[in-house]
């Protein structure tokens, strides 16, 4: 890159956050938030797991359900080795992510089926969820909260909400 190419936003990037989502029986290119708004059908997660993720994430990071956290996780798990979930560098390699998330979200779904999500979240943080079966609850809490932060505040809109200049060198075409 030469000194003549030193301005922010100079290059159109190709960081497609778009994914193929099953919406109304058709495969549709959409962002996670668009997929959430259009009531997408998850392709890796079950409806129960998807709903549990949205419910818990929304409690932890308000705005993340509308931001499409379930669609985001679902499409990243579908990406296999190309997954961009933060889990890849905190102990859940991409080849193990699907099993990790399915097991973790089954445990979340089970826990919130008979307790308020606030109580479940508090118990998860301290690994005291009765009958929890899955990866360590506090670890799941940390990762799902991080995913929700990614969706809600890891974009230009999220930065704007916090009044931080995004100042991209190469601006993402879509959410990230």
């Amino acid at each position: 890159m030469t000194a003549g190419h030193n301005r922010r936003d100079v290059i159109t990037g190709g960081a497609a956050a778009l994914g193929l989502f099953l919406i109304g029986g058709n495969q549709v290119w959409a962002t996670p938030s668009q997929a959430a708004a259009r009531n997408f059908t998850p392709q890796i997660l079950t409806q129960s797991q998807s709903q549990a993720l949205s419910t818990l994430a929304e409690h932890l990071v308000p705005g993340s359900a509308k931001g499409g956290v379930s669609a985001y996780v679902d499409t990243q798990l579908k990406a296999g080795p190309n997954s961009l979930l933060m889990a890849k560098y905190v102990g859940v390699p991409v080849e193990q992510q699907k099993g990790f998330y399915l097991s973790a979200l089954d445990a979340v779904a089970s826990a919130i089926s008979d307790k308020p999500v606030a109580a479940v979240a508090e118990a998860m943080a301290s690994d005291t969820v009765p009958g929890w079966q899955g990866p360590p609850a506090s670890y799941v809490f940390f990762l799902l909260r991080a995913d929700a932060l990614d969706v809600t505040y890891g974009s230009q809109a999220g930065f704007s909400d916090l009044d931080i200049p995004y100042s991209a060198h190469i601006r993402p075409e879509t959410a990230w």
């Binding site: 890159m1 290059i11 990037g13 190709g14 960081a15 956050a17 080795p81 190309n82 961009l84 933060m86 890849k88 560098y89 390699p93 991409v94 080849e95 193990q96 990614d150 890891g154 974009s155 995004y166 100042s167 991209a168 060198h169 190469i170 601006r171 993402p172 990230w176």
Partner: peptide
């Protein structure tokens, strides 16, 4: 190439190790 390097912490994960764990 440098033109691939999108300003995003989520995109940045592509630069990390991604082969066999």
């Amino acid at each position: 190439s440098t033109s691939d390097m999108i300003s995003s912490q989520i995109w940045a994960r592509k630069l990390k190790w991604s082969a066999a764990a």
